[in-house]
Design a protein around this nucleic acid. Structure first.
Lengths: 219, 219
DNA sequence: ACACGGCCTGACCGATCGGTTAATATAATA
DNA sequence: TATTATATTAACCGATCGGTCAGGCCGTGT
């Protein structure tokens, strides 16, 4: 049987309008958040009738969740090889950091989208938590080789700190520019920021990797 | 001349409804953000008529900015003594960290409010940037004693990292709970988090303070 | 030729949005 | 007591919200 273009079913997305709507929604939700965007905004930006948005996406929440899911898939893809890599712990962590920064630099709107919804009591919270879990699992596992499972020096705390340090630069970039009088998202600035993060990772590993793989204060 | 209750003028806030409206707005804006809250929501929560909100606050944006400003004043007050303190650089930084964490723990909604608006292209962006400037100025100045002015190990990068590390825990707390299966805002968890941050500060200072006050790689 | 199903639209729905207005209740002043 | 300024409200405004609906268009299979 010859395959033909059927009703949209998540397998066949050859449809042009569908993609236009989704990418418009992505752009606008990133700019202004769930509550700041109307379906009409999306339709106008995509150049279609408002009703068509509801034709492809049953309601606003589903449209938003689809945007989230698309980003999650892209993130998973981008981190997959780095996350499953084996070898020297330093190399693993540095590669993971680079993979994540690569992804964020290519998708600077993603951290904003996530962070804003996390701050709000978003209806997508559980979904976001589920999306973050693999990343946190990888991170705590990587740190777990030389950090304790609990207490103030635990792997959870360290990964949370690294993650916050890395991501906050991007989410705060709109005001960092005016505070430091530079363009934080410029090419050189991003490269320098990346160097900084690697530098911190190294200094952390230097301080916490001991010969018997024990963190200080855990003897 | 005897002082009397006059029209509301930012000096005399003895009025009850004014305070109720403002604190309701604060609570709701923190929960759901600017676009997620309607003036009617605020009025109902405050137990007054919607029109009274517009009587005290000319429009929604001004109501929101007043909430922001109130928080900023409270933050300034909370950090004032710590920021102006002199003495040993380690003590200054640890005291600054404690003062900031004290404030955030007493006002857990504040980082959320700020972060969400920063991520959005909020109309209050310039105001927020202005509010953050003193904090960043203090931080970069404190680090400035032993860190370079530019490059990947600059005081700006370090303070940005510290700030991100510290604040992200609070803004991400809604999902950290389900990821780590704990209550990140519980009393013990907060105390442990504080220990962790002090621990990182110390490890950073150990690594970067050298006898001639120069950062590694800057010889 | 005709029917069918996916694509797309304009018109419409009730609810709610931010904001205004006119009128009233209340309390201080004279 | 009469007057005046403030505090408060119900009713209303046009615009926009998320969402629905009936029907037209168009390529395909029969």
């Amino acid at each position: 049987m010859k395959t033909k273009i059927k009703k949209h079913d998540n397998k066949n997305k050859s449809n042009d309008s569908y993609e236009k709507i989704l990418s418009s929604a992505e752009e606008l939700f990133i700019e202004r958040g769930f509550d700041g965007v109307s379906i009409n905004d999306v339709a106008v930006h995509a150049g279609v009738a408002k009703a068509l948005v509801f034709y492809y996406f049953k309601n606003k929440q589903i449209l938003f969740d689809t945007v989230l899911e698309d980003y999650y898939k892209a993130q998973s893809l981008a981190l997959m090889s780095a996350i499953s890599a084996k070898g020297d712990i330093r190399t693993i962590i540095h590669n993971g950091v680079d993979a994540y920064l690569d992804f964020v630099e290519r998708n600077p709107g993603y951290p904003k989208l996530i962070q804003r919804e996390v701050c709000s009591g978003s209806k997508s919270l559980e979904k976001i938590a589920a999306y973050m879990t693999p990343l946190y699992a990888w991170g705590t596992n990587a740190f777990g080789e030389f950090l304790p499972d609990s207490g103030p020096a635990s792997k959870q705390h360290f990964f949370t700190s690294f993650f916050g340090m890395a991501i906050n630069y991007y989410t705060y970039s709109p005001i960092l520019g005016s505070i430091f009088n530079t363009d934080p998202m410029g090419k050189e600035a991003l490269a320098e920021r990346r160097q900084h993060i690697h530098l911190i990772v190294d200094s952390m590993l230097d301080g916490y990797i001991t010969e018997n793989n024990q963190a200080p204060g855990q003897e």
